[in-house]
Amino acid sequence: MTQVELIALAYQFGLAVAFLILSAAGLAVIFGMMGIVNMAHGELIMIGAYGTSIANRHGLPLVLAALCGVLASTATGVLLERTVIRRFYDRPSESLVMTWAIGLFISQAALIVFGPSLPSISSPLGSVAFGGFSLSIYGLLLIAFGLAVPVAIYLLLSTTTFGLHARATMQNVEVARAIGINSGSVYSATFALGAGLAGLAGALYAPTMSAVPNMGGSFIVQAFVTVVTGGGNLVYGTLPAAAGLGLVQTALTAVFGNLVGVLGLLAAVIVSAKLFPNGLAHRLSGKRFS
């Protein structure tokens, strides 16, 4: 393998891992904190992308438009948490069905309001050529975000008061309440954070995909498997899980093609469930967050 091919492959690996991390981040935060599997995660991603696309079409530059997308999904998250989700803490299976129904509602409402698709936005930054290959520079930005998001969440959880309260609530909600932490507002803030991260994924990928009501579907399977394989912790769970799954997928896709890549990812999930029945985070962090 030449150096050029190696770089191209490394870039593919980076893209695959970034996609898994960014798809999964919002889901991981909510799952890790509250044990809720948010089935409307894909629709929150779609709201992020729609917000970005619509704002961009109304003349906002891409960076500000992306911010609008993130705000839109965060606001939706807050609204959902206030009205519905907060009644379903400690009820993982009911919340799963509830969020599934909410997801269905959001995607079908988007179809009615915005029609079957929105015009896509163009990918900024152009491409860079080297040795017969050329890569999208925007892809490099996605990789950077893929690494920055877990780091930022880690810092948020380890250095701020919110982080302290959040970790306490995560470990033992009764004790946290007893020492005066308002677990309700911690949950609300976490859900909003998770929704915002979902919106961020949508905003970041909006220029690389077509904006359709069901676009969340392209993220959701990868997000689920990454989060559950990793366990509910971004740094100790999602990050290594994404790296592992991304490596398997990239290698298999490069050698055997896309079908084996997809099947291999699913097989890796099963193998990982067998090897780490309590999730990667549990293994890597020595039960720190779970």
């Binding site: 599997v37 993982p92 399977v221 689920f224 498997v225 559950v228 394989t229 079908l259 997809v262 099947l263 699913l266 097989a267 999930v269 099963i270 469930a273 067998k274 029945p277 999730g279």
Partner: peptide, 29 residues
Amino acid sequence: FVFFGGINGVLVSITTLAVTLGLETFLSQ
């Protein structure tokens, strides 16, 4: 594989989901 392999909780759901989607992807082609 699942139960005697020690997989439990939500990982059972995700393992069965992976099998389902794998089967769908395979049969589709």
